[in-house]
């Protein structure tokens, strides 16, 4: 980023944090990938990704297995570093965790009660009774308030994933990265979870990045669908459809068709 724009950025941020990449001048930006490449040995997984996402957008990332979409998410969450190119992150707000990651598996601690598992999401943000209260609040929002003191092993797959969602959201993340978190659920539970996720996203206004295999899921939830193929962005499609969306509507179906054409055309 040129020095001139950096100084312009500073004035936007209430508490200047020089070491941190700051938000862009034009409106609030959640994060931006600029020419990001990622190689593992000889294998190039991501090959020049440019992606600029404003705050509050719901982005779905689609692609065939091994196209690099999970790697993109791991870069965003700071689990990996790009080989070249840059990743700019938005400003961090006080008392909020920056990026939360929701895994494909629930990854709950079997030896901690449901509410204690949710409190893991407040590590470094809150503790004691305050943490418990916040955890119970968010458990109420995912409909599991009455299971707070049970062990995770007695919950169903969908319930476990709801606890994992509560854990990801309890710290009020600015960016929520979701790595196919609904992939292992049955079809009906999955639709329920999609609706829950959409409801909470509308209420909390975080930026969501959902990696998925499911094109219908992507167009039902996202403002914008990014198709990745051979490590590049092959399609960047806006989905300006009013919410609540009706599954199977012609508008969604048309976009779904376009994405499928891109993937298999």
């Amino acid at each position: 980023m040129p020095a001139a724009s950096l100084t312009a950025v500073r004035s936007f941020v209430t508490t200047p944090a020089p070491a941190r990449p700051a938000i862009s001048v034009e409106g609030r930006r959640a994060f931006a990938f600029k020419g990001v490449e990622k190689r593992f040995g000889d294998k190039t997984v991501l090959d020049g990704i440019d992606l600029d996402v404003p705050v509050g957008q719901f982005v779905a990332v689609i692609g065939k297995s091994g196209c690099g979409k999970s790697t993109l998410l791991r870069l965003l969450a700071g689990l990996d570093r790009p080989t070249s190119g840059s990743l700019t992150l938005g400003a961090e707000e006080e008392g909020h965790s920056r990026t939360r990651f929701m895994f494909q598996e629930p990854r709950l601690l079997p030896w901690a009660s449901v509410v204690k598992n949710v409190e893991v999401g407040l590590t470094g943000l809150a503790s004691g009774t305050q943490a418990r209260q916040r955890a119970l609040d968010i458990l109420g929002k995912v409909g599991l308030a009455d299971r707070a003191d049970e062990w995770p092993s007695v919950l169903s797959g969908g319930q476990k994933q709801r606890v994992a969602l509560a854990r990801a959201l309890v710290g009020h993340p600015q960016v929520l990265a979701l790595d196919e978190p609904l992939g292992a659920l049955d079809a009906l539970t999955r639709i329920e979870m999609q609706q829950l996720l959409e409801r909470i996203w509308i209420a909390q206004k975080f930026t969501a990045v959902l990696v998925t295999h499911d094109v219908a899921e992507a167009v039902a939830l996202a403002d914008r669908v990014v198709v990745i193929s051979d490590g590049r962005i092959a399609l960047d499609l806006d989905v300006p459809v009013e919410r609540p969306r009706r599954r199977g509507s012609a508008e969604l179906a048309r976009r779904e068709g376009r994405i499928l054409d891109q993937l298999f055309g």
Binding site: A77, L79, S97, R100, F101, F103, E105, R107, L109, V120, G121, T123, G124, R167
Partner: peptide, 12 residues
């Protein structure tokens, strides 16, 4: 190891 990674991601 997945739980360990989860713990790291959540800032433990």
């Amino acid at each position: 190891p997945q739980l360990v990674e989860m713990g790291r991601v959540y800032g433990m």
